[in-house]
Amino acid sequence: MEYTDKVMEHFMNPRNIGEMENPDGVGKVGNPSCGDIMELFIRVEDDRVTEASFRTFGCGAAIATSSIITEMVKGKTLQQALEITNMQVAEQLGGLPDTKLHCSNLAADALKEAIEDYRRKQDDPNAE
């Protein structure tokens, strides 16, 4: 597996692991049959993401992209956070192997889901 040092560093020492208590938004992407499941949790204050954490079942790329996006998103406004793309995540890691660019590179999708989840809850405070 031709992973960059940065990918391996995030794989070996992932940041912000684990389920968040009372998160403001949760995004889940992937499914067991494709071999990657990613859960991203965010805390939002004044329209900014103040904290993010993840749980991932997946390969080295899936874990490293989950880990780095929790750092990339911190302090960003929701609008800025929505603009983060899977490609940018891969670039932050110094690139991913070609086969991984399309299968295990889902962190930005999970982030979008989490923000949508947050907004849904804002619109309807009683929604679960």
Binding site: M1, G35, G58, S104
Partner: peptide, 29 residues
């Protein structure tokens, strides 16, 4: 609960060479 390729990377970091039937280790995904 542990994906095969991630396990291989973990083992490789400890100097152990193994393989997996995970999609992530195949070209066809």
């Amino acid at each position: 609960g542990v994906e095969g390729e991630a396990m291989l990377l973990g083992l490789n970091a400890e100097g152990i060479a193994a393989s997996s039937g995970s999609a992530c280790t195949s070209e066809t995904l």
